[in-house]
């Protein structure tokens, strides 16, 4: 199998011919297959065949070299830029999202502040209205009370005067009545004595 380079080079063209002849018939009979294998045995193991080393080195250098240059100049910068653009875009979108969230939070805070303000204001208005109504009611009640007191005092004065006049009349009536009684009993009446008597009784 592991033939020397010189020997392999010598036999290489012959092996190619032998192989070409063996291939079409090989599937039909085992004998041909063995013949083909023998041909390879003589030619050497193909992967160690030095005849084609220069060809393989040359073509590998050409194909791999061009592949390397193409990848380095075109493909890799392109994929790199795609990935970078995506990374930037994601970072940018995350920033935007964070900013929008901050805005939303600020709006919520402002709304709550306004709500608290409005609540305080409404409380104040309600308190003021209640105080005002209370003061008005107090004033009215005072007015009414004053008026009532005045009328009460009036009435009391009138009662007192009526009573006084009535009391004055009581004295005169009692004197007259007593005089009349004394006259009918005694026949004559001393007015002055009656008056003093009535007066003493009354007092």
């Amino acid at each position: 199998m592991f033939v020397t380079p010189g020997y392999a080079q010598e036999t290489a063209p012959a092996s190619g011919d032998a192989h070409g002849a063996a291939t079409p018939g090989a599937a039909e009979t085992g004998a041909h297959t063995e013949a083909a294998a023998d041909a390879h045995g003589k030619a050497g193991f193909p992967p160690f065949e030095p005849t084609y080393f220069p060809s393989q080195i040359l073509w590998l250098a050409i194909t791999f070299g061009l592949f390397y240059v193409f990848l380095k100049k075109v493909v890799l910068p392109r994929i790199g830029s795609i990935l970078e653009v995506r990374r930037d875009r994601i970072a940018h979108d995350l920033d935007t999202a964070a900013r929008l969230k901050e805005d939303a939070d600020a709006a919520v805070a402002a709304y709550e502040q306004e709500l608290a303000d409005a609540r305080a204001k409404s409380n104040r208005i309600a308190n003021e209205a209640r105080d005002a109504a209370k003061a008005e009611a107090d004033a009215e009640r005072k007015e009414v009370e004053t008026a009532l007191n005045a009328r009460l005092a009036d009435a009391e004065t009138r009662i007192a005067s009526v009573r006084a006049s009535a009391m004055k009349d009581v004295g005169a009536i009692a004197e007259e009545t007593a005089t009349a009684i004394v006259q009918s009993l005694v026949g004559s009446a001393d007015k002055a004595a009656v008056a003093s008597a009535v007066k003493s009784v009354r007092e």
Binding site: H19, A22, T33, A36, A37, H40, P46, Y52
Partner: peptide, 10 residues
Amino acid sequence: ANDPIHQFVI
């Protein structure tokens, strides 16, 4: 060919 080495022939 039914030969496992044939596939490596150049």
